[in-house]
């Protein structure tokens, strides 16, 4: 290898190394994984006393999530459905079709989406209309003391 060739290799590899190092650091910086921003946790959605058997009770929950240097307070609507005994289901009120908010229609005992006519049953299953899947279920439990209903959001 002559001198010219050696110098060429040196220059090119040093430039590549510096450029690569810088790219790696800046790339990691730009792609920073948000910490805890998607963390889910149990929050209180009400008490058992608020519930009526077999009638969905809507709850608007403010969920505080870190959003960079902010803390964003997202509002999420869920329905709590109680079987009158030990079991509570929680359904997201977001229509699975295009994201409108569904309403409980007491007369027909169905959830109805005002946008494109999606209809869901008490258990969230699609009865009619365009929704591709049942209403999303939210994890729910009654706390050991038997009073508070906790959901995981």
């Amino acid at each position: 290898m002559n001198r010219r060739r050696a110098l060429t290799v040196f220059v090119n590899s040093a430039v590549a190394l510096i450029g690569g190092g810088l790219t790696a650091v800046l790339g990691a910086f730009a792609l920073r994984t948000p910490r805890g921003e998607n963390a889910v946790r149990w929050i209180r959605a009400g008490t058992v006393a608020d519930l009526t058997p077999h009638v969905p009770v809507p709850r608007v929950l403010a969920i505080s999530r870190p959003d960079g240097w902010y803390r964003q307070r997202a509002r999420e609507t869920i329905f709590l459905v109680w079987d009158g005994d030990k079991t509570v289901h929680a359904l997201s009120a977001t229509c699975t079709h295009l994201g409108c908010r569904v309403r409980w229609d007491a007369e027909s005992t169905t959830f109805r989406c005002p946008c494109h006519g999606g209809v869901y049953g008490l258990d969230g299953a699609v009865i009619e209309g365009p929704p591709p899947r049942p209403l999303d279920r939210v994890d729910v439990r009654i706390d050991p003391a038997g009073t508070d209903v906790m959901v995981r959001l």
Binding site: R4, L7, T8, F10, V11, A14, V15, I18
Partner: peptide, 17 residues
């Protein structure tokens, strides 16, 4: 310039970086 002076430049730049 390349690669003769470029090699000197690169050497100094590398040390600085």
């Amino acid at each position: 310039f390349y690669p003769w002076q470029a090699a000197r430049d690169t050497a100094v730049v590398s040390v600085v970086v």
